[in-house]
């Protein structure tokens, strides 16, 4: 089997508080192969977004955070890198898409200027003219026809769907090998979310970009991901191929999560337990979804 693009081993995270250390992650194991689309699914506060931010090294400044565990990216140990080394990966090797595209774009600079800055991180000598050409090219790829107007606009002048397309273009323009998508489009309405996700799937398939897709939306995950990790309170509770998990959920928490999706056929909002001792049952790994290198 080929080596994974990203391999997180036994990742733990705790924050120092006045009541002592508060553990957020209890030893996560996640791997993503090149070009693979992997979803990390769980409820709010389960540690999904935090995981993405650790990969980007965005908690390094925080003195109250304690990490342990290995993060291997492209054969390099991310967790042992210096700040500058990590910084040089951001936006180029690893990029990220956020929940709310409109508030993720700076309201005081035009889209074009922000695009230029993104391109500059990969190529500091790039000229504005050249950057503009690339930006227009990429906006066409995300199905924006009047690219000139969009580049000359501010984020608050564009619709949420338009901003999401811009974000997708910005995230992929430097051809990263890994895209972290933190609940992309949760702030958008469902139809726009579906359109932009389809677009994103097409583009990452074209560019062979691996995606860590963080979401609580099971419907979207089922359409988007090849493989799924279910996370509960900082622990992976079930992992496997997407259809295995959806057709045959084994862990009690996964079953509760599936049951929590309201049916379009009615029957009211389903009742499930908020917490249960059974949610802490040991991890269930479907066949074919094992960690690379693990004894099968």
């Amino acid at each position: 089997m080929n080596n994974p693009l990203l391999k997180i081993t036994n990742l733990e995270l705790g924050f120092n508080t006045f009541q002592g250390e508060h553990k957020i992650l209890h030893g996560l194991n996640i791997h993503i192969k090149a070009g693979e689309r992997v979803a990390l699914v769980g409820e709010s506060g389960s540690g999904k977004s935090v995981t993405a931010r650790i990969i980007l090294g965005m908690f390094d400044e925080l003195t109250s955070a304690n990490f342990s565990g290995d993060i291997l990216f492209n054969e390099q140990r991310l967790d042992l890198m210096t700040k500058a080394q990590k910084h040089s990966l951001r936006g180029k090797e690893i990029s990220m898409i956020f929940q709310d595209p409109t508030s993720s774009l700076n309201p005081t600079f035009k889209i074009g200027q922000q695009f230029y800055e993104v391109l500059r991180t990969a190529n500091p000598k790039i000229k504005k003219q050249a950057a503009n050409k690339i930006a227009i090219d990429w906006l066409h790829k995300v199905a924006i026809t009047d690219a000139d107007r969009v580049l000359n606009s501010y984020a608050f002048q564009l619709s949420g769907g338009m901003n999401q397309r811009v974000m997708i273009a910005m995230a992929l323009v430097n051809k990263p090998s890994l895209l972290l998508a933190d609940e992309p489009g949760t702030a958008l309405d469902v139809t726009v979310q579906a359109q932009t996700l389809n677009l994103m799937r097409e583009l990452v398939t074209q560019e062979n970009t691996a995606v860590l897709f963080i979401s609580h939306n099971l419907g979207v995950v089922r359409e988007f991901a090849d493989r799924v990790y279910i996370i509960y309170k900082g622990r992976i509770v079930e992992q496997g191929k997407t259809h295995d998990i959806f057709d045959n959920p084994q862990h009690p928490y996964t079953q509760a999560l599936m049951a929590a999706v309201p049916r379009i056929t009615g029957g009211g909002i389903p009742e499930i337990d908020d917490t249960s001792e059974r949610y802490y049952d040991p991890i269930f790994i479907h066949k074919g979804g094992e960690e690379i290198g693990d004894p099968v």
Partner: peptide, 29 residues
């Protein structure tokens, strides 16, 4: 604390450019 600064950091904008430009202009208003 704004999402667009987190985005700038995630996209690898240099810390100096963020301080003197991308975070400065919205703060100046």
């Amino acid at each position: 604390k704004k999402p667009y600064i987190e985005m700038a950091q995630a996209f690898g904008f240099s810390a100096k450019r963020i301080a003197t430009k991308y975070a400065f202009k919205p703060s100046l208003i």
